[in-house]
Design a protein around this nucleic acid. Structure first.
Length: 269
DNA sequence: CCCGGAACCTGAAGGC
DNA sequence: TGCCTTCAGGTTCCGG
């Protein structure tokens, strides 16, 4: 599942290949993904445009174009972006042909990915809270945002308007690191717990980026390689395994219909 | 505004 | 072997 570290890895690895190249042809194999645009509108919006830069905001990948519009890609659950993959690729949804002869292919098993052409970044911006790895995001800011929320901290961490980019796996890892039970009401966290959670979020995301993302399920880097971040997971997707701190079996709990993994000994309710 | 649940989607996995 | 159900989770929508 591409979360912030996975999208950041994709951005970093695509950037040197894409910047300066032009779109020469765009083939849409599944129009659902570019809805509400038609394949022709989508193609016309891109062909001839040069890619100026690649940005990431939360889990969104943003390609800034020479006409100052943005190609915005959200991979959701199972979207994968591959550079020059061997043909044919099952479940290709969009193929972008570039001016140097290379191809960027969006593959999506579950058809939940979304691609759009936007005038600017405002629409993306309006949906998202702060970037957790920006210096302007502080423990105090996190505390302010958690204060009004009575929902379980796990659910609040998944709210992209509270913090952008955290998904199910990294929420579980950060809560474990901070020793906070996922069902604790967000507003009940002490200042000390909030500070620990703040540190845990940042170190978890940074470490996952260093390991080039977590290849659970379908995630691959643009060259087709897997990431290695999941080898460091202590609780996420580790149901039944012993907690690395105390040996208690990791428990699974459904919170808002999301599998939540935690250590019942290290993370007291 | 806040909360929780359903819907979207398809392939894998497990039960019988 | 095969059919059926359940699970996976990012986002959006809807009702309370």
């Amino acid at each position: 599942m591409p979360e912030l570290p996975e999208v950041e890895t994709i951005r970093r690895e695509l950037e040197p290949y894409l910047v300066g190249k032009k779109f020469v042809e765009v083939i849409v194999c599944d129009t659902k993904i570019i809805c509400p645009l038609t394949a022709a509108e989508f193609r016309e919006g891109l062909v001839g445009q040069r890619i100026k830069s690649l940005k990431r905001r939360g889990k969104y990948l943003i390609l800034l174009l020479s006409n100052s519009k943005c190609l915005v890609i959200h991979l959701r659950m199972s979207g994968v972006l591959l550079l020059n993959p061997p043909e044919p690729q099952a479940r290709s949804r969009v193929v972008f042909h570039l001016s140097d002869g290379s191809r960027l292919v969006l593959i999506d098993r579950r058809r939940l990915a979304v691609v759009s052409i936007l005038e600017g970044e405002e629409l993306v911006e309006s949906k998202l809270g702060p970037e957790p790895l920006e210096p302007s995001f502080t423990a105090k800011e996190l505390a302010r945002r958690l204060k009004r929320r009575k929902a379980p901290i796990k659910a609040v961490l998944l709210d992209q308007k509270v913090i952008a980019g955290i998904g199910n796996m990294y929420a579980d890892e950060a809560l474990f690191k901070a020793r906070v039970h996922p069902l604790r009401p967000a507003s009940d966290l002490s200042w000390q717990e909030t500070e620990r959670l703040y540190t845990a979020i940042i170190s978890t995301l940074r470490s996952a980026i260093e390991h080039k993302g977590a290849s659970v399920d379908t995630y691959l880097r643009p060259g087709g390689e897997a990431g290695a971040a999941h080898f460091n997971f202590k609780v996420a997707h580790c149901g039944g395994k012993p907690c690395p701190e105390c040996g208690t079996p990791v428990q699974r709990l459904a919170i808002r219909n999301r599998g939540s993994y935690f250590c019942p000994t290290c993370q007291k309710c």
